[in-house]
């Protein structure tokens, strides 16, 4: 699977969503599932750009997106600050307006929309996020 390197800025989110949609469409996912996959990939890339690469210029995200059987695998690799989604507190989605948290929502959505979200951090090689979802 070829790796595609995107500059780490929000302008690439359109391309990232297009890549995921194309792979998922060819993989036979429903329109509803394709939207979910696009949203999860967008939230993942947005978090890398906003948090892992906060204050960093000329950074890059290396991405792969492929079908293996009936499962889509989306990976994103960055060399920014490590940011483990599993350690982010889940937002209370039933809190009232004044107590509703602004942060943590993207990761919450990634977990809800995908079957599995895993994160590996290595001080030399960087951070790798892997998300998978099986075709229904």
């Amino acid at each position: 699977m070829p790796k595609i390197t995107f500059p780490a800025n929000f302008e690439v989110l359109d391309e990232i969503r297009d890549l995921v949609a194309q792979t998922a469409y060819e993989g036979g996912f429903t329109e509803k599932a394709i939207y979910s996959l696009q949203l999860a990939a967008d939230e993942a890339a947005s978090n890398i750009i906003e948090h892992a690469y906060e204050g960093v210029t000329n950074a890059a995200i290396e991405m792969t997106c492929e079908m293996r059987g009936d499962v889509i695998f989306i990976t994103m690799h960055d060399t920014g600050r490590s940011f483990d989604p599993s350690k982010v507190k889940q937002p209370d989605i039933h809190a009232d307006l004044s107590n509703r948290q602004i942060g943590g929502l993207g990761i919450y959505l990634m977990r809800k929309l995908m079957d599995e979200v895993s994160y590996e951090s290595n001080s030399i090689t960087g951070n790798k996020l892997t998300m998978t979802k099986r075709r229904g």
């Binding site: 989110l13 969503r17 939207y35 696009q38 949203l39 967008d42 939230e43 947005s46 307006l97 509703r100 602004i102 929502l105 993207g106 959505l109």
Partner: peptide, 12 residues
Amino acid sequence: YMSSAGFRALLA
């Protein structure tokens, strides 16, 4: 399309 970035704008 709207991601959580849009949801946050609505919430604020």
